[in-house]
């Protein structure tokens, strides 16, 4: 296991999720021009479930979760998020995006706004909340990610770990039902990975539905209900973390695990 095994206040067995399906992806295919990037994806996610998606680079994991909030379009199949199907209809896309939060590998904070303005922006302009109420809510989330004192600073003045936590607070401030994480710790220095993973674990324990693309297998073991392995656009294997790491079934899974679990 890598050295950033995060701490978790609960035991190793994650609390079970509900049976209500919040994301349904059915026979989904996607092409980038001629390149068939996602092949026959079938996935169902329950409310409160936490899924870690792993795989070699180029396997389509980021593309998959970006299809869920329509940052990428799929050409075939259906994706339904919390009862709304994702089509070309802009209204549906807006509904889905307000229920799904996303945290990016490169943080993507808005550098010309302060931390507080970054977090409060969406509630003010999308949910039309009054400014004072939105800023109070933003401070609550900044306290939750443990950086309330940075509220009046600009993103450029923060460390990577702090920026990523602001990004998480920014997504949470919209009260999403689902949180997507696209390699949230891959751009961080090792000493900052733990602080971000701790925030993600606290979020997991509060019952959020999470889809996390990551290489942090300690995180998967601590909180994930399911680990999904993707390679070359297909879902090869999915299982509970314990089963996945101890009894991988496919050769490609075994090869991948041997490459990442070397220390």
């Amino acid at each position: 296991m890598n050295q950033n095994t995060p701490t978790s206040s609960t035991s190793a067995a994650p609390a079970s999720s509900s049976d209500e399906k919040i994301i349904t992806i059915s026979a989904m295919h996607k092409w980038f021009g001629d390149f068939h990037v996602l092949k026959n994806i079938n996935l169902e996610v329950n409310r409160g479930e936490r899924i870690v998606i792993c795989g070699p680079s180029g396997s389509g994991k980021s593309t998959l979760i970006r299809c869920i909030n329509r940052l990428e379009e799929h050409q075939q199949g259906t994706i339904t998020v919390d009862g709304t199907e994702l089509t070309h209809d802009l209204k549906n896309i807006e509904i889905v995006r307000s229920e799904v939060g996303m945290v990016f590998q490169q943080f993507n904070l808005f550098p010309h706004l302060t931390v507080l303005e970054n977090v409060a922006l969406a509630p003010i302009w999308v949910r039309k909340m009054p400014r004072t109420e939105a800023e109070e809510s933003a401070m609550t989330y900044l306290e939750r990610v443990k950086i309330p004192e940075q509220a009046s600073k600009y993103p450029g003045q923060l460390s990577g770990g702090q920026q990523q936590r602001v990004a998480i607070a920014r997504s949470l401030c919209m009260n999403p039902r689902i949180m997507l994480f696209d390699e949230p710790t891959s751009a961080l220095d090792p000493e900052m990975i733990k602080e971000v993973l701790d925030v993600m674990i606290e979020l997991a324990e509060s019952g959020m539905t999470m889809l996390v693309v990551t290489h942090e297998m300690g995180f998967a073991t601590a909180v994930a209900h399911r680990v999904i392995f993707m390679d070359e656009g297909e879902i090869i294997e999915q299982n509970s973390p314990v089963e996945f790491f101890e009894n991988p079934k496919h050769d490609r899974t075994k090869l991948f695990l041997s490459q990442i679990l070397h220390h």
Binding site: R97, V100, F104, F110, H112, M174
Partner: peptide, 26 residues
């Protein structure tokens, strides 16, 4: 950076709001 457009989209901002608040100032 493309990430600015994506973050604005992911937060649910419409084209005009995203341009007015995030894209055009930068």
């Amino acid at each position: 950076p493309a990430g600015q457009y994506e973050a604005a989209d992911a937060l649910g901002l419409t084209y005009w709001k995203a341009h007015r608040l995030i894209i055009l100032p930068q």
